[in-house]
Computed example of a mutant assay.
Amino acid sequence: MSNSIQLNERVNLTKSQINVLRKQGQIPAIVYGKDVGSISVIVNEKEILAAVKNNQRAILIAAIPAQGNKPVLIQNIQRDPISNKIVHVDFYQLNMNESLDSKVTIHFSGEPAGVKAGGILQVEMYEVEVRCMPDNLLSAFEVDISGLGIGDQLHVSDLAFHEGIEVLSDSGAVLIRVSQTHAEEIVA
């Protein structure tokens, strides 16, 4: 648990009042969970950007009004489609003694031998669903794909997560494949 974040109470604000807060660098958010129910809050934009800079799935210690400090996970970040600025954040309050379901991003490293030989790399999935204790949650999982040749595939079942992480995604699902290029025939 590396970061802490301050959340301030938000009570019955109009849309125009929320827009004014956004211009002042305050983002509307919600915290929900078994212990806290559902609480409307405001978070400082700089704090949330700093918290997600290195790990969007980091467990944060949130100072929640009238609740004290609680571990939370960023469940969703909504962004404006044009400016890409954060417009809303959903925090999920964690129970550190219960497992949780989350997604882990897969980072592919290396250049496959099949691509060097003229094949085409096709990424089918960028993340997998996992179940684990909050302390075991990974932000990303690195996979070396340099050994893949033309016609090779990497399946979810090929991932070797450490003990304590159960993969929920379909084990037969293809993460990445190297396909052969099809030369087009030239008709004279």
Score class of each variant (00 low, 15 high):
L148Y: 01
L138I: 04
A66K: 15
V104N: 00
I106Q: 06
K116A: 09
A63L: 13
N95H: 08
V87W: 05
V128S: 05
E111M: 11
L137D: 03
Q78S: 05
I106W: 06
G114P: 15
I59G: 05
D80V: 10
V72A: 08
L94W: 00
H162V: 04
V89H: 04
Q78R: 10
S102E: 09
D90E: 09
H162Y: 12
A183K: 15
V123I: 14
L73S: 04
R131A: 04
G172R: 02
Q180C: 11
L60P: 10
D90Q: 06
V178C: 11
A51Y: 00
P65R: 01
G119W: 02
G114A: 11
V52Y: 03
D170M: 12
G164H: 07
L60R: 00
Y92D: 04
I106L: 12
E185H: 11
L94R: 09
S109H: 15
Y92T: 05
E98A: 11
G164K: 00
Y92C: 05
V115Y: 10
L121Q: 12
D152W: 00
V156M: 11
Q78I: 00
A140D: 14
R57D: 07
S171M: 14
K85A: 12
A51M: 01
H107V: 09
S139R: 06
N69E: 15
S102T: 09
Q78L: 03
K85C: 07
E124N: 15
P134L: 07
Q122H: 15
Q67S: 09
N84V: 12
L100G: 03
S102D: 10
N54G: 09
E124W: 14
V130Y: 02
E163M: 04
V174S: 09
G147H: 15
S169N: 09
S157Q: 13
T105G: 07
H155S: 14
A140C: 09
E184C: 08
N84Y: 13
A51D: 01
D152T: 04
M96V: 07
K116G: 10
V87N: 12
I176Y: 05
E142S: 14
E129M: 13
